[in-house]
Amino acid sequence: MNVLISGGAKNGKSLYAQQTASELADCGPLYYIATMIPHDGEDRARIERHVKEREGWGFTTIEQGKSIASLIGREDVDLKGSFLLDSVTAVLENEMFPVALKEGKPEFLGEDEEAPERVKKELVAFGSAVKEAGGSVVFVSDCIYGDSCGYSPSTEKYRRALAEADRALAAVCDKVTEVTCGITEEWK
């Protein structure tokens, strides 16, 4: 069973997603797909906090911030397991706005125009491959669609691309849940 979880920032999505993924694992393999690619000390501190929060849950961490479909067919990845992908937002960001580390400093490589379509397809493909194998994926995304201010054209493109990825995932997931203040609302 595949699940899409979205909602505002700091509303309890990750905790709910961890519970859902761990229930779906049903004693089978439980994977955490770590999507954040650290670029500085702030990122590393956040990752450390996340790692601590997951302690004791039994997750095997897979570092995969890009090319999610490449997990299909990997020897060390059992598609019959339960996967938590947190988050769609980060994967899209990593692929749309790639950054390379040059002498320890992040350098922006320019916007990848093909990323939105590719990321959407890869996420859907990964979800269906896992489901076909008998496993499950919990996708976590962010609801960033309620602002009134105009953003720069590239940020606006990113918002649209994330919404399209969310909608594509919502269409194929078995369950779609919104988390607000830690309270869940079922949409599908």
């Binding site: 505002g8 669609y145 309620g146 602002d147 009134s148 201010c149 105009g150």
Partner: peptide, 21 residues
């Protein structure tokens, strides 16, 4: 489109438009 969920805009016109909407 519900544009009322974000930060209160600094720009006076955007703020007024958000409230009107």
């Amino acid at each position: 489109t519900d544009t009322t969920q974000g930060v209160v805009p600094v720009d006076r016109e955007v703020r007024a438009a958000r409230e009107a909407s």
